[in-house]
């Protein structure tokens, strides 16, 4: 509960402004995507070649998506500290919560894709 109480974007927004937070996440997204783009291409191309192992590759793609968003958060955090070295707002709980939430969404979406959409796609 103590942890959850700390989860708020308000102190960070008030300290550095919304524009700076968004800019940090944009930078995080750009650099994380640059790093992960070849990974996604490799996994998709391998899935096409080894279609009989498609479920394995879809799981790997979901895991890669999770790492991708974790890297976005990591770069965003780095960008915030580079913008303001003496950042006072405790951003760790918010980032952990945000990463967990997105991972849960990816997981639910991934399971839906595997068990609902994939059997419909390959007919």
């Amino acid at each position: 509960m103590k942890f959850l109480k700390k989860v708020s974007w308000k102190p960070l927004r008030e300290e550095v402004g919304l524009k700076t937070v968004l800019d940090a996440f944009l930078g995080g997204f750009v650099y994380a995507t640059l790093i992960f783009f070849p990974v996604f291409v490799i996994l998709v191309e391998l899935m096409v070649v080894y279609m009989y192992k498609r479920y394995t590759y879809v799981v790997l793609i979901i895991v890669a998506l999770m790492f991708h968003q974790m890297l976005i958060h990591y770069f965003a955090k780095r960008a915030l500290y580079l913008k303001k070295e003496d950042l006072k707002a405790d951003i760790r709980p918010m980032f952990v919560m945000s990463e967990t939430l997105i991972n849960v969404i990816y997981l639910i979406g991934g399971l839906l894709f595997i068990f609902v959409f994939m059997p419909q796609l390959w007919v």
């Binding site: 800019d23 940090a24 930078g27 960008a79 580079l82």
Partner: peptide, 9 residues
């Protein structure tokens, strides 16, 4: 974003 670019240039 510029800070990241500078840092990782």
């Amino acid at each position: 974003m510029n800070e990241l670019t500078e840092r990782f240039w």
